[in-house]
């Protein structure tokens, strides 16, 4: 088994009096898709935002590539090689695909933009992900379909030699065929050796692409197990009750939030 690329150890996070994350552990290995599941309010987004540098953790450790790291902001996360694809996409409608993929990290010298270089790199990245649904990399994002937008958002995340990609509900707003495309893309990211964290509510999606499933229940990590050792029913029980048979919390309890 490969060494983890990213690890959370005993992470705690409170917002004022609300204790959102309790001693959360999470292991993300390169080449694997780690699904992060949990009910609304279980703390999935907080975990992602803590890794992305948007929230600062109160205690615990974030270990990246074997080194404990402190991530004060999105830029620092990106520098480490951590990219986040947000639920609401975070693309600029009025810009084209290339401009979006390079937004904030344009290539070129002294304020000038090297459009040709960026266009080539964008095309190569899309090709490496076997993306064939986009006609021209100079298409304005506003004219793309939901699936295409999600594809661009994911491609944007892998453009940066990133090592970990966090995907927040990438298929939530998509139809069947488009969901298919995006899941294929997620699988390809892992096959390229990236550590992929997939947040999803959709058990079909999770069981289809995830190698391990990490379940949050009221801010606690109740289980992170290989997908093959779990059944759909067990995961649903973990999500809703925090335990399933011998897995999960030791005994049923009402966790204090």
């Amino acid at each position: 088994m490969t060494e983890p690329i990213l690890e959370l150890r005993g992470v705690n996070k409170s917002f004022g009096p609300v204790h959102v994350l309790h001693d959360v552990d999470l292991v993300v290995r390169p080449g694997e898709v780690t699904a992060l599941v949990g009910d609304n309010g279980a703390g999935k987004s907080t975990v992602v935002k803590s890794i992305a540098g948007i929230h600062q953790i109160d205690s615990g450790e974030v270990v990246f590539d074997g080194e404990p790291v402190h991530i004060p902001g999105p830029r620092e996360a990106a520098t480490l090689g951590i990219e986040v694809v947000y639920q609401d996409l975070a693309l600029c409608d009025n810009l084209d695909i290339v401009q979006n993929m390079f937004l904030g990290r344009e290539r070129g010298k002294g304020g000038f933009l090297d459009e040709a270089d960026m266009e080539r790199a964008a095309r190569e990245t899309l090709a490496s992900l076997s993306v064939r649904t986009v006609k021209s990399v100079r298409t304005q994002v506003s004219s793309l379909s939901g699936g295409q937008r999600q594809t661009v958002a994911i491609a944007k995340a892998v453009l940066w030699n990133s090592k970990v990609v966090l995907l927040d509900e990438p298929t939530a707003a998509l139809g069947v065929a488009q969901t298919r495309q995006v899941l294929d893309l997620v699988r390809r990211l892992a096959d390229q050796g990236l550590g992929v964290v997939l947040i999803s509510h959709n058990m079909n999606d999770v069981f289809e692409v995830a190698d391990t499933i990490a379940t949050l229940y009221l801010g606690r990590m109740v289980a992170q197990l290989p997908t093959r050792d779990l059944t759909n029913t067990q995961v649903v029980e973990l999500i809703t009750a925090g335990r399933s048979g011998d897995i999960g919390l030791a005994k049923p309890e009402v966790a204090t939030v």
């Binding site: 902001g73 999105p74 830029r75 990106a78 986040v84 947000y86 609401d88 996409l89 975070a90 693309l91 600029c92 409608d93 009025n94 810009l95 401009q99 937004l103 904030g104 990290r105 344009e106 933009l113």
Partner: peptide, 17 residues
Amino acid sequence: RYTYAVGSNEVAARRTG
């Protein structure tokens, strides 16, 4: 480029750093 980006989607611009 950033001028267009900020006017197009301020949140997205912020998130890209």
